[in-house]
Design a binder for these strands. Structure first.
Lengths: 213, 213, 213, 213
DNA sequence: GTGTAAGCGAGACGGTACGTCTGGTCTTCAT
DNA sequence: ATGAAGACCAGACGTACCGTCTCGCTTACAC
C-alpha cells in the first residue's frame, strides 16, 4: 500500500511551485496593498481591490497568501526590510554614548517621528489592530516586527547595567516597557498625545522612579 | 403666511421616538451581540446574526445604532455598568491604606484577574481592536471606559503625593502609564505573559526607578 | 338557537364599527391611492405611501381594507360612480336609434375616448393587471366594473334581435365579445393601436361576418 | 495630453463576458423560475427563491437579467421553443383542409387545451399580467410570443380569401381578433368559461356575422 | 358633564426580499 | 503550468415595505 505521504495531491490543494512565481506580481501586490491601506484604510481594502490595482488575478493572491491580513503583513515586513536597507549603515542598534538617559530619549524621539510618518502609520496601525483580534497574526506581528526592536532596548539596558547606570536586579525586558508601552498605548488607543517632551518625561520617570529619593 | 409643508425635519431621516423604544429588544440585542462576539469573534459577528439571535428585525438594530461596532460598544458599556452595580459597594476608587505601593499592586492584580475573565475578554478585545483602526470609536471607547478607570489612579497618586510617597513634580496622568500601559500592551498585543508577579514588578520598577539609588 | 350572524366578536378580530368611520380619511385615502397609481404606477404604490400621502395611520388602511389592491379597487369604483354622477342623466344605457350598427359604433367610439383618458388609464390598467394574476380580485373587478357595462350591450343586442337586425339564434353575451374583446385586448396587451376607425371596422366585421354573403 | 485613467468603460458597470457564461446555471435558473411560478405563483416568486432553488448565487441572476419578469420571460421563451422542438413536425402553420371554418375550430380547440395545461398556465398568465402593467415587457411578450401565433391566422385567412371563403376586403389582422380576442379575454380576465363549444360558436359568429343573411 | 370606548395619526416592531458588494473557489485562455 | 481575467456560489450589507402592535389623542355616545 502506498505511503500516506507520497500522494501528490491528496489533501492539500496542490502547493504551487514557488520557483515559477512572478516576482513582478509579488511586488505589485505589495505596493497595491500598502497603497490601498494608506489611502482608504484597512477595513475598506479588499483582496479584489488589491488584485485590481496590482493588475493581477485574484487567484494569484489566494495562491500565495491566505488572507488580506497575511498579504499586508508580508508587505509591511518587506517595506520594513527595505526601509532598513535604505537606512544603510545606521542599523539595528541603539547608540551608546555612555549616558543611558540621553540615548533612550534620542531613540524614543526617533520612534515618535516614525510613528507619525504617514507611510508607516496606516499599515502598521491596521496590522496592530488585526493582531489584537487575530492572535495568530498578532504573534507573528510581534515576533517579526516588535521583538527585534525591543531586543535593542534590552541590549542597551544591559550595557547600562554593566556601567552601573541601571540597577543590576531589574529585568531589562520588563524595564523597557516602562517607557515603550506608554508610547505604544497612546499611539494605538488614542489615550493621549505623543511628543518628544512626553517621551523625555517617560524616560525621566522610569529611570528615577516616581518615589522621592 | 401658509406653510406649504408641515414636515419639520428637512435633512434627517425622521429620528426615531426614543420613548417608544422596546426595552426588551434592546436587552436581547445586547445579549446577542456579546454572546456572538464571545462565541465566534468580532469579525464573524454580523448584524444579521445579532438580529436573528435576538429575535429582532434588522431594522430595529439600524434604527438605534449605526454599525456593529456601535452596538457592541453600547452592549459592553451596559455590561460594565451592570458588573459595577453587581460589584456593589466596593466601587470606583482605589483603596488608600497609606502604602501606595501595596495599593497599586492590589488594584493591578485585580485588573489582571478581570482581563482574564472570559466574559469580558472577547468583547473588550474586539472593541479595543476596532478602536485602534476606527479612530472615532476608539476615542469613545477610551473616554467612556478607559479614562474613568485611569482617573482613579490619578486620584490615588495625588494622595500619595500629598503623603510624600510620590515626587511632587510628577504628572500623575503620565506616571500611571508606567505600570498601566505595560500591562495593557501585553494583553492587547500578546507581547508577554500577564501575572500578579509581573504587575508587582511593574509597581516596584515604576516607584523606585530603574536607576540605582 | 342563536343567530349565526349576531355574534359580536367571537372569532374575528373585532370587526370595526363602521358608524364611527372617518369619512375624511376615507376620501383622503382614495385620493392618495389614485394619485399615486397615476403618478408612479401600481407596483411602486405602497400602503405606506398611501397612508403618508393621505396623512393617515397605516392601521386606518388595514382596518378597512385587506390589501393595496382592495383599496385601489374601491377607490376606482368610487371614482367611476362619481364620474357617472357627473355625466348626469344620460347614463347606463346604449342609445337605440333603430340602427344597431350605428349605435354600436357610437358607444365603442366613446369607449375608445374613455380608455385614453389619463385619469382612468393608470388605475384601470393597474386593476386589470392585478386581476389577471389575482383571481379573486379579478372576479370582483369583472363583476363590479365590467359586467354592468357588458349587460348594456346584451340589452341592446336583444332589442336588435327583436327588430330583426341580429340573428335570433345568437347568444348576445357571446356576440358582444366579437367587438368588445378585440378592443379590450389591444388596450390591455398593446397588441395594436386603438382608434375610431378600428372599432368601426370591428362592428362591420362582426355584424356582417367575414364570409362573403 | 495623457489620459489620467486607463478604465475603458465609462458608463456601464463592466458588461459580463457572455462566452464564459455557465450554461448549467442558466438552465437551472429557468427551471427554478418556471417551477416556482407554477407552484407558488408569480407574486410569491422571488429572485432569492429562484437563486436558492437553482443552487446559484443571486449575483449570477442579476448579472444576466434585470428583474424577475425578465428572467421569467426568457425562461418562458425557452420553454416555448423547447415545446415547439418537441412538437416536431407539426409546426408553425394552421392546417388548410379547404374548409376554413373547420380549420379555425380545430386550432382554437387546441388553443383551449393548451391554455388549460398547468405547465403553461401559471407562467403565461403571470407574464401576461406583468405585460399589462409594464409596457416594455408587454411589448416584448407580444412580439415574441403572441404575434408569431397571430401571423399563422393571418396566413390562413389570406388563403381563405384566395379560395373565396372570406371576403376579399377584410383585413386579416383585424379579422382574426374576432375569435382570438374573446378567448384571450375570457382566459385573462375570467369574464367567462372556456370550452370547445364556446370557440366553435365564436368561429360561427365571426364567419357568418351576427346579422341575418 | 363626565366616563368610556371606539377610531384615529403615528410609528416601533418582527419579518422578508430587495439589489449590491465582497470573499474565496473554479474555469478559461494566453503566455 | 502560471498568471490575468472574471464567472461562479455564498452570504452579509443597509434599505424599503409588509402587516401587526402599542401609544396618546381626539371624538361621540351613554349615563
Amino acid at each position: 500500500m502506498a505511503a500516506p505521504e507520497s500522494a501528490p495531491a491528496a489533501s492539500a490543494r496542490t502547493t504551487p511551485d514557488a520557483t515559477r512565481r512572478s516576482e513582478k506580481s509579488r511586488r505589485a501586490i505589495y505596493d497595491a496593498a500598502l497603497g490601498l491601506v494608506a489611502e482608504v484604510g484597512y477595513a475598506k481594502t479588499t483582496v479584489e481591490g488589491i488584485a485590481a490595482r496590482a493588475g493581477v488575478g485574484k487567484q494569484t493572491i489566494y495562491r500565495w497568501w491566505s488572507s488580506k491580513a497575511d498579504v499586508l503583513l508580508e508587505a509591511f515586513l518587506d517595506l520594513s526590510e527595505q526601509a532598513a536597507r535604505e537606512a544603510g549603515q545606521a542599523p539595528y542598534v541603539i547608540p551608546d554614548t555612555g549616558d543611558v538617559a540621553a540615548d533612550l530619549r534620542a531613540v524614543l524621539r526617533a520612534t515618535v517621528d516614525q510613528l507619525r510618518d504617514p507611510r508607516f502609520e496606516a499599515p502598521s496601525r491596521a496590522l496592530a489592530a488585526e493582531g489584537v483580534v487575530n492572535e495568530q497574526l498578532g504573534r507573528v506581528f510581534v515576533a517579526k516586527l516588535l521583538e527585534p526592536s525591543l531586543r535593542l532596548y534590552v541590549d542597551r539596558l544591559r550595557a547600562a547595567q554593566r556601567a552601573g547606570q541601571v540597577r543590576a536586579d531589574v529585568d531589562p525586558r520588563i524595564a523597557l516597557e516602562l517607557f515603550v508601552s506608554p508610547l505604544a498605548q497612546r499611539w494605538l488607543q488614542y489615550t493621549g498625545p505623543i511628543s518628544h517632551e512626553y517621551t523625555d518625561t517617560l524616560v525621566d520617570y522610569a529611570l528615577n522612579g516616581l518615589a522621592p529619593r
